Simulated assay, not measured.
Amino acid sequence: MTPTLAERSSGMHRTRRVGVGRAHAKVVLLGEHAVVYGAPALALPVPQLPVTATAGRSSRAADDPDGVTFTATGSAPPPVVGPAWDGLRRLAAEYRAATGVPQDLRLDVVLDGSIPAGRGLGSSAAHARAVVLALVDLFGGEVTANVVDGLVQAAETATHGRSSGVDAQAVGASAPLRFRDGRAQELSVGCDGLVVVADSGVVGRTKDAVELLAGVFRHRAGARESFVDRASRLTDEAGRALAAGAPEEFGARLTDYHGLLSSAGLSTTRIDTMVEAALTAGSLGAKLTGGGLGGCVIALTRPEHARQVVRRLHDSGAVRIWAVPLRGSGGHAC
């Protein structure tokens, strides 16, 4: 008879001393903000910004009332206080409830991450997914992808409030995704190219951006419908351009979407400067990515133009830059 998760957790069928889980960053190509109102979104995994979680049983009392002690390390560890940490604690509690892990079993979880927080790169979701997968690996048993996604989404809701679910799935994806109404499917990509991701060095203020946009919608008749309709059309056009192998058209939709976000007040002077620098250097399109009011810029670039695009982005204020193939799982830092 196959042991239950509770039996594994209690040591009756102890098969592992340590569990390991991994996830990675992501960028939203198009669809920010509108996706929570039912519009589609396109997302690209960024596998060269990984997160690894290691979970093991602890013989000492946990500092946290949920019985889990978290330790952060790596080149870009998450903050040990605040909403993201609260989200991880909630995740641990919900994992116990969903799988029957005994409440008196103490755990140590070490997070080794390279995703800068607050940049629209999915840091909180990636850490949450890595933790869930580490716990699954530690205790064994059958846990479906839907359960994993649901646990990550619960942590995201605790961290950000209303959340579309894009990050929860994209940080575990191996290919670009089209996301709508809680469902994701692999995006057809018929052309090559690099998506250059440039960190402005300014923490994005997603909550403030959401509230700002909601205020615009409240005080301007028809503003929400117009925003969502325009976002949906640009995202659908971009998806068709990718499938058809038309990078110039796809790039143009990126730039158009930046205009939509900027006109709603979600960009900043530095972000706009970086977008213009990327376009001037030969990018096919560029935009902010994520919630806005800081964070990162993405630029679609032909490989032969990447060096000059990277140089101009650095000159315009970027503090870190990565280049991600539009299709394929590789990538390198610039």
Rank of each mutant, 00 (worst) to 15 (best):
W85F: 07
D86A: 13
G172C: 15
H127V: 09
D137V: 10
V101A: 05
T99Y: 04
G161Y: 04
S164K: 07
Y95M: 09
V80C: 11
R90P: 14
D104F: 02
G74D: 00
S123N: 10
A125C: 01
V132K: 00
V136Q: 12
P78Y: 11
D104C: 03
G113K: 15
Q103L: 01
V131T: 02
R106L: 09
V171W: 03
V110P: 10
E142A: 11
V109L: 14
G113S: 15
T69K: 10
L111D: 15
S124H: 09
L105A: 10
Y95V: 10
D108V: 12
G120P: 15
G100L: 05
T159F: 03
V171P: 02
S75P: 02
V110Q: 15
S164H: 06
T159V: 04
E156N: 10
N146P: 13
V101E: 05
V166R: 03
R90L: 15
V148A: 06
G122W: 06
E156I: 00
G120W: 05
P83R: 13
G172I: 09
L111F: 15
D104G: 07
R89P: 13
P78H: 06
G120N: 12
G140K: 03
V147E: 12
G122F: 09
L91P: 12
V110I: 11
A72Q: 12
A134P: 00
T157Q: 15
L111G: 14
P79S: 06
Q103P: 05
D108P: 08
V166L: 03
A145K: 12
L138N: 02
S163N: 14
G118L: 14
T159C: 04
G165I: 04
G82C: 04
R119M: 14
R96G: 05
V152P: 01
A170Q: 09
V110N: 11
V147R: 08
F139C: 03
V132G: 00
V132H: 00
A97C: 06
D112I: 10
R119I: 08
G87A: 05
H160G: 07
G161I: 05
N146V: 10
G74N: 03
T99M: 10
V171M: 08
A134L: 04
P83A: 14
F70S: 00
A125K: 08
S123F: 06
W85H: 11
D112M: 12
A76Y: 02
A92C: 11
R119V: 11
E156D: 04
G100K: 07
D149N: 11
Q103F: 00
V81P: 01
G118Y: 13
L138Y: 02
G141L: 03
T73P: 02
S75H: 05
G87T: 03
D137R: 11
W85M: 14
V152L: 00
A84C: 08
G100D: 08
D112F: 09
T71C: 01
V109H: 13
A117L: 09
G165F: 07
A173Y: 13
S163F: 11
Q103W: 00
A168L: 07
A72N: 11
V109R: 13
R129D: 07
L133H: 07
